[in-house]
């Protein structure tokens, strides 16, 4: 695949990677984001991602188009999970193929950074102490 999509269930990275293979590509860079067991000093037991799907997919596709415009790459794809995730689960995957490694790494970094800051997906963390809360970074509000 090329582009951005949301996945309601666990997805297969090998199949996604295979879609980026291309005779013009001399390399491939990827990023995997995983659910870790702590955040801001609190022990996390699991989380749920909620999205505004129509806007998330539109904004995700815009980021993919920007990456193709800014970097000398061949193909780029990103998949983000929504729904309930456990510790260690794959939350987000970015893959980029390019003629040379520099552009592949740079584009991969660009996509994950922009997705984190712009795509309307929200993380609801469940804590070991039994409570839960929404993460709204850099907001200075609630």
């Amino acid at each position: 695949m090329q582009g951005f999509r949301l996945a309601e269930v666990a997805f297969d990275i090998a199949a996604l990677r295979a879609t980026l293979l291309d005779d013009r590509a001399g390399g491939y860079a990827s990023f995997e984001g995983w659910v870790r067991d702590r955040n801001d000093g609190r022990e996390v037991s699991g989380l749920r991602y909620e999205a505004y799907p129509a806007l998330a997919e539109r904004e995700g596709e815009r980021i993919i188009a920007e990456a193709l415009e800014k970097f000398d790459i061949v193909r780029v794809a990103c998949v983000h999970r929504i729904g309930e995730l456990a510790i260690g689960d794959l939350a987000v995957w970015v893959g980029v193929s390019a003629a040379h490694r520099g552009a592949a790494f740079d584009a991969c970094r660009y996509v994950i950074d922009e997705v984190k800051s712009r795509v309307p997906i929200w993380k609801h963390e469940h804590y070991r102490q039994g409570d839960a809360g929404w993460l709204h970074p850099d907001s200075g509000a609630p």
Binding site: A51, L55, P120, W122
Partner: peptide, 10 residues
């Protein structure tokens, strides 16, 4: 219309 609070994907 949707009001979008700060996002936290990734």
């Amino acid at each position: 219309v949707a009001f979008i609070p700060p996002v936290s994907g990734g």
